[in-house]
Design a protein around this nucleic acid. Structure first.
Lengths: 261, 261
DNA sequence: ACCTGAACACCGTTCAAGT
DNA sequence: ACCTGAACACCGTTCAAGT
């Protein structure tokens, strides 16, 4: 099926990561491009430049903004050149998300000395903040350990803290998955691309939220007692508090399980 | 800005839902189309036919398969006709997801008589099963209460059970959000579109999982103690058990909070 | 080994015009 | 009120050819 071609077309997701934690650029829109095309007539990229270009575009205009053509233009080359480094747009998205997770890895490398539950909370909060900062991460972070080495390491790091609780392997596995799923799930929801009305600038995000709140208040209290019960909490609530509240529920359940063993 | 036109173009997400729980078709690929075009020369749709057509396509070929043109073809009309009922593809996806959530609403309408925590588990499991059944739901269910009336009702139903625990409004709000975020997050992850190798049929899903497991076993045990600790659990694990394990962690944390009050 | 140019086969969305 | 036809402005991906 595969010829033993000397020059294989498309290295198809070759491993670009050599074990070292590489540090992606910080989220603040950096206008500095580290490397330009070497010559004027022929562009020259690298997987690193492809990924950091992709991250820049994602930060500026989100997932829909990352087109292969837009990326190629930013790199100063043709669209087809991108396919030398990634197999397609999906892989590009996965690699870009994982690339950025290097920052979380770097920021959490010293955990493991404190109370395991507290260490888990620290890692979870760092991940949460990273996704809030870069909403496009929600859909692509921690999704594919085969393609995403940093995600794998992060999984490992979280799992190691859970291991310290002395649970069974199965409980350890479930708790780790639950934690990751919770963080990604909540953050993905909160970091969701706002509705078109907001994106187009027809409405500010605050106006949109105020609008939603008003709609809630207008609901029949008989049919929607819960909504009415919490609408004042929802109004002007802080996403981070909401996340922390849920996280503590999960972590206290975990502590209970550990103490029971 | 807006003319008071008698025939406004595009009703822009008008409320199609009148308070009754409408029941979408079951997930089993139904080949029966409830209504065809009325005449041969001019197609005639309705929001219902648009959404059930969209759901059929989503069930068959996932989110990327749902193009406006494919939907129009299925409905027997032109692409532009779809825009009479929905403002665009994004809204279509949101409405289709919410439409299907009517089934979860129907299946959980009698909860509220048992232990609140058990009732919450029942609702969560029903939601989980619905998303596993229809992976495309993960990214669009419970995302926008303004556009998604069934999601709002489901939120309400879950919140009502949490209310029975006698927490503060803020705790009630946080717990409800955490529950929903957890279910959607985990289910979205598990129901994720499999990698291209699997979709294209180059590899079966089992082969892919076996491959990932093998890669895990090949990792350096010194650097990846957690992975090695749970790889046997991962191998041949059941997604549902994994979900239930995490859910119980969250629910026992919640019970603890309720008992503490 | 890595990049270019150009093409193929699509897309979502708009809009004047029809009924 | 609701649908058609056709166009506009894009897409991702492939591939032979260049260097």
């Amino acid at each position: 099926m595969f010829e033993n071609a000397q020059w294989a077309r498309r290295p198809a997701a070759r491993v670009w990561w050599d074990g070292a934690v590489s540090t992606p650029p910080p989220s603040s829109k950096a206008a500095s491009s580290t490397r330009g095309p070497r010559t004027r007539s022929r562009a020259s990229h690298s997987l690193e430049s492809v990924l950091s270009g992709a991250v820049e575009i994602l930060d500026e205009s989100g997932v829909p903004g990352l087109t292969i053509r837009a990326l190629a233009t930013r790199l100063g080359g043709g669209a087809a050149s991108v396919y030398w480094y990634v197999s397609g747009r999906e892989e590009l998205l996965n690699l870009a998300a994982d690339w950025v997770l290097g920052g979380v890895l770097e920021a959490t490398k010293d955990v493991g000395a404190g109370d395991p539950i507290d260490d888990l909370r620290d890692i979870a909060v760092t991940m949460f903040d990273a996704i809030v900062d870069r909403p496009w991460l929600g859909a692509y972070a921690m999704r594919n350990t085969t393609l995403q080495p940093h995600s794998l390491q992060l999984y490992e790091r979280i799992g190691e803290q859970v291991m310290r609780l002395g649970l069974t392997p199965r409980q350890t596995f479930h708790a780790t998955s639950a934690l990751v799923g919770f963080v990604i799930g909540i953050a993905a929801d909160m970091g969701q691309e706002p509705p078109a009305v907001v994106v187009s600038g027809e409405m500010s995000k605050d106006e949109y939220l105020a609008d939603a709140t008003a709609q809630w208040r207008a609901l029949d209290p008989t049919r929607f007692p819960y909504i009415h019960h919490i609408v004042d909490e929802f109004d002007g609530h802080d996403d981070r508090d909401q996340f922390l509240g849920g996280l503590d529920l999960l972590l206290s359940g975990l502590r209970l399980q550990a103490d029971a063993g």
